[in-house]
Computed example of a mutant assay.
Amino acid sequence: MNSLRRLLMVFDLFRPDQPVIDVETICQELGFTPATAYRYLRELGDAGFLKRLPRGYALGPRIVTLEHQMTKYDPLLACSRDLVDKLVDDTGLDALVSEWHGDSVVNVLIQRGSDAGPVGGDRGRPIDLLHSATSRVVLAYLLPRQIRRIYDVHAKPTEPQQQGLAWKPFSKSLLAIRKQGYCISESELHPGRSGVAAPIFDEKQRVLGSMTLVGRSERFRAFQPGYLCDLVTGAATELTARIALQ
C-alpha cells in the first residue's frame, strides 16, 4: 500500500459518532505506528485538511473549499442539474444523482420535490448497498466477482431484517435489473417510500452511478405503470450521453 493511500485512510476515520480523531484513534483503527500517525496529522493539518482542537483533530477548512468547488463545477453535477429539476417538476418526487466510489454509492445531488418524507440518504453519506434501488441498479452492472465480494461483506441472511437475501435469488434479481435497465424498490429503506433508479455510465460504458426518483408509495401508484421508469431511464441515458462529451 503506497504512502498516499495510507495517508488518505485517515479520512475514513471520521464518522457521525467520531467527528474528532487523535493519534491513538489512528493507531488503534488503522494499525499505524505513533510516529506515522503524528506525521500524517501534521501533514494534513499543514495543508488545511485537518484542524487542531483541544481533543484532537477535526476536518479542516480546505474540505469546505473543495466541497464548494465540486458543488459548483463538478462535471457530473453540472450535466445533471437541469435533468434533475425536470424530473422533480414533472413528478413532484425527490430526484437524486448518486455516484459509485470505493464499494459505496453516495448521493452527490438531491433535489427535493413536494412529496414530503425521508429522501433515502443524505448527500455525501453512503447508501445501503443491498436495500435500495439507487445502489442495486449500480451493483447490477458490476463484474460478477465484484458483486460476490460486496455480497459477502454486506449480506447477513441470518439476521431478521435481511432474511431473503440468499445469494442465488439476489444474484438473479441483479440480472433481471440489468435486463430491464432500471430497479424499483418499495419500503426497503423507509416504510411507505418507493424508488426507481436507472444507471449512469462513463465514456467507456462503465457504471458511474445512478439517477433515482423517490417518494411516497401512494404517489408512485398514482402514475401510469412504466411512466416513472421511462422518465428516470430517459434522464439517465441523456446524462450518460452528456458525460461522454465532457
Results as ranks from 00 to 15, higher is better:
R5M: 15
L8R: 09
V10E: 12
V10L: 15
D12Y: 02
D12P: 00
F14W: 01
F14V: 02
R15K: 15
D17I: 01
P19M: 10
Q28M: 12
G31N: 07
F32V: 07
T33D: 03
P34Q: 05
A35K: 04
A37H: 09
Y38F: 07
Y40C: 06
L41H: 01
E43R: 13
L44M: 11
L44C: 13
G45K: 01
L53F: 08
P54T: 06
R55A: 14
R62I: 06
E67N: 10
T71N: 14
K72T: 06
L76W: 12
L76V: 12
C79I: 01
L87W: 03
V88I: 04
D90A: 05
L93R: 05
S98Y: 01
E99H: 13
E99G: 07
W100K: 10
H101C: 13
V106I: 12
N107W: 07
L109Q: 00
Q111L: 08
R112M: 11
G117Q: 09
V119Y: 14
G120K: 09
G121A: 00
P126L: 08
H131F: 12
T134S: 15
L143M: 07
Q146W: 11
Q146L: 15
I147F: 00
A155H: 03
A155G: 06
K156Q: 14
T158H: 04
T158Q: 05
T158I: 11
A166Y: 01
W167Y: 10
P169K: 05
A176T: 04
Y182Q: 02
S185C: 05
S185P: 00
E186W: 00
S187W: 04
S187I: 01
H190P: 00
P191L: 10
G192E: 14
R193E: 07
S194L: 03
V196M: 02
F201A: 01
E203A: 06
E203C: 05
K204L: 08
K204V: 01
R206L: 06
R206F: 03
L208Q: 05
M211E: 03
L213T: 02
L213C: 09
V214M: 14
G215P: 11
G215E: 06
G215C: 08
E218S: 14
F220S: 10
F220P: 07
F223N: 01
F223A: 04
G226Q: 08
D230V: 03
G234Y: 05
I243A: 01
I243V: 11
